[in-house]
Design a protein around this nucleic acid. Sequence first.
DNA 1: GCTATCGATAGCATTAACCAATCAATCTTC
DNA 2: GAAGATTGATTGGTTAATGCTATCGATAGC
Lengths: 311, 311
Amino acid sequence: MTLTELKYVLAVARERHFGRAAEACYVAQPTLSVAIKKLEDELGVMLFERGGGGEISVTPAGERVAEQASRIFELVDGIKDSAAVAKDDLSGPLRLGVIYTIAPYLLPWLIPEMNKLAPHMPLMLEENYTKVLTEKLKKGEIDAMLIATPVEEPGLLSLPLYDEPFQVALPAAHPLRKKKAVTSADLEAENILLLGTGHCFRDQVLQACPCLNRAASGGLAKTLESSSLETIRHMVASGVGVTVLPCTATRMHYVDDDLLTLRPFKDAPPSRLVSIAWRKSFPRPKAIETLRQAVLATDLGCVAKVTPGQR
Amino acid sequence: MTLTELKYVLAVARERHFGRAAEACYVAQPTLSVAIKKLEDELGVMLFERGGGGEISVTPAGERVAEQASRIFELVDGIKDSAAVAKDDLSGPLRLGVIYTIAPYLLPWLIPEMNKLAPHMPLMLEENYTKVLTEKLKKGEIDAMLIATPVEEPGLLSLPLYDEPFQVALPAAHPLRKKKAVTSADLEAENILLLGTGHCFRDQVLQACPCLNRAASGGLAKTLESSSLETIRHMVASGVGVTVLPCTATRMHYVDDDLLTLRPFKDAPPSRLVSIAWRKSFPRPKAIETLRQAVLATDLGCVAKVTPGQR
DNA sequence: GCTATCGATAGCATTAACCAATCAATCTTC
DNA sequence: GAAGATTGATTGGTTAATGCTATCGATAGC
């Protein structure tokens, strides 16, 4: 049984005339006769009664076949329609993973931008660790992710988006406030608040300031397992210690302004490179590109955006 | 788009593996790859995401296509099933036309016989004149008919079933009752009751007894337009006149036995040949044959059945 | 770095689908 | 009733499609 044969059956049932049906199908009459006969042989039933006279009539079996055939073609059209919709890379949800230390500072700007650039592509967001997101991306459980470490996984591609310098956050009355810029060494004696293990930002801070690493092993730096940068920031504001924040985490907060002082690093400030990553085989390249454009269109203030030319 | 392609899509969606899907479809793997690619090109959408690793995943578009495809195959199976049922000539209703002067005397026996021989083929009956039934048969509004005149229409076939002699019906106290058999001439002086024009039996009686024909034109024979043999029989029983009946109309009536006397014709009695007719193109030969067998299996008493050998 | 696995590609053989021409049966018309 | 017109079935040959074998490129795991 073939869709073509069913199409011919519908035409003959409609026209009640092999010649006209053939014309309607843009084929020659023998083609139609043979096709109908083939289907009749396969089903073992006569579908049409060829009377000698002008008109042919449809047998009850033919009626039923024609009825089901028309329902089949409704579904076929449904397939074509839904394919036409899905054709657009920017339609249908995009599952986006974002690491904990980016999400709260980027998404409030990114989401309106995406609504503007791709209004028919809702974002299904997930916040998690780099490692977890990478696994989910490889398994196809998410479609793209925003992370801050180089991606070197087989089957994955990535593009850098922006380079984000780190800053030091001090309580309002801290001695270091007197300096316009601090160095890694300045922090050695301080009580440093760090994210728990698993957060890549923790590792990046420790790598940028080796002295902290020593402090951490010596028990001076206070690690807050599974906590968030926001929690740490509030603790700094309350005077518990100092910390290092990515610059996007230092904007948009007004309540702390009186209690929190920010200072840049002196000379070659440490930074992290935020990238977007996706499966090489992901079939919606425009969705990725649009997401990238949306991030770059976002006003992130202190960051150094990677423009397309720098790719 | 092809049913084969959709079958392949379903297999890949189910197995999530081109090789296994090809095996399940009894084709080689390249066949499947090419077919899927062809459908993807036609729809303009990727249906599957071929990751480098072992498993492939189904895109949202692929999910929808697979879902609709499985519904399509349900309908295809439905076509095959209903065709398998319709394959049996003896299933589904048979539209049977019977002339007025046969129906009441044959159907009470024929219907139980048909219920026995073809329990899944209900009879949709219509009583009408030979002419009307012939037209309806040619137009396909009925499938077969039982008539008493030779069928010589293009596109129609017929077979004789039985030869039915005529008998004379007399009121209980009629003088002709004394004779064991009557002749056509005996009826010349009688008040003859005849069916109205249009009934073939009227014409057959007039042809068998030319003297009646003369009487009819002379006003002696009483024509009862559009009436029935039953009405005429009751009038004979009440003494209005005499009539000629086909022998099947003279059985099974007990109420009239005291009031009605039947006499056969003497020498070469007139008769009518009852036949079954159908369209040459009617696609259920077994239905016709079964109907013929059912008529022949009926106990019609006085008739001379035409056995298959006499065809 | 080597091997195994998976899907894509190329080349070739087979099948089918299709058309033009013709045929057989029937209906219509003169 | 014979000639012409109409209709679906049949035939022969061409083209497109489908399928298979062999091979390739990419990837993952040892």
